[in-house]
Amino acid sequence: MLGLLFFVFVLAVFLGFELIAKVPSQLHTPLMSGSNAISGITIVGALVAAGQPHGGDFVTVLGTIAVAAAMINVVGGYLVTDRMLAMFKHKDGGAK
C-alpha cells in the first residue's frame, strides 16, 4: 500500500514536470493561479476532519476552519483564473 502510494507520487511529480516545462510565458500567471487552485485539494482532508465524528469537538473545530480556508483557495483560485483567462480570449484579432 505505502509502496504504491510512493509509486503514484513519483509518477505524478514527473508528470507535473512534463506538463509545465513548455508553457509559454504569457500563460505563466493563469497557470500558476490555476495550479494554486488545485493545491486546494487538501479540502478532502479538511472535509474528513470536519465531517467525521472521530476524535471529539476540537477536531471538528479544526476541520471546519480547514474547510473554510481550503474553500477560499479552491473557489477563489478557480474564479480568479477564469477571470484572467476570459480576458485572454477577448481579442480583436481573434485567437491564435
Partner: peptide, 28 residues
C-alpha cells in the same frame, strides 16, 4: 503540503494533485 497531507490520510487523489502542483511550482 497537500501531498504530505495525502500521505497522512492515505489518499491517492491528494497525492497526485499535490505532486502536480509541487512539480509545476518548482518548474516555474
Amino acid at each position: 503540503a497537500a501531498t504530505t497531507a495525502g500521505f497522512i490520510i492515505l489518499n491517492n487523489g491528494l497525492i497526485v494533485a499535490g505532486s502536480l502542483v509541487g512539480a509545476s511550482g518548482i518548474i516555474l
